[in-house]
């Protein structure tokens, strides 16, 4: 997974063509840390079907807020730079995330 931050978010996500998945996480967020291995496995399994990124939201607060993310964890799908779908803490469920990717890819 590509680590994105305020320096490269524009280029890697907003200017990117096709589907981009961004995991908004932070090291202090226990549920995020719990999900991390599953998210990495998900990215590996679907390599090539989308670009997989992760953003440390605590270290990139303004950027996260500009992306309308103020709660962790959050998974956001972008297509051609447009936000198309958000999973929040309550709705994150890996099979549902996979189904969403299958639908969007």
């Amino acid at each position: 997974m590509i680590a994105v931050d305020k320096e490269n978010f524009e280029a890697e996500v907003l200017q990117a063509e096709g589907l981009v998945f961004v995991d908004f996480w932070s090291p202090k967020c226990e549920p995020c840390m719990a999900l991390l291995p599953e998210v990495e496995a998900f990215a590996e399994k679907n390599a090539g079907r989308a670009k997989f990124c992760k953003l440390d939201a605590a270290a990139n607060k303004r950027l996260s807020i500009a992306q309308k993310v103020m709660g962790l964890p959050a998974f956001v799908f972008y297509k051609n730079g447009e936000k198309v779908f958000t999973f929040d803490k309550e709705s994150i469920d890996m099979p549902a995330v996979q189904a969403k990717l299958d639908e969007l890819a």
Binding site: C29, E30, C32, S64, M70, G71
Partner: peptide, 18 residues
């Protein structure tokens, strides 16, 4: 507005509200 300002976990989300 869950995850967009509504939260149930301070340690998870406090950072955003600096």
């Amino acid at each position: 507005l869950r995850g967009k300002g509504v939260s149930y976990c301070a340690t998870c989300d406090a950072d955003f509200f600096e």
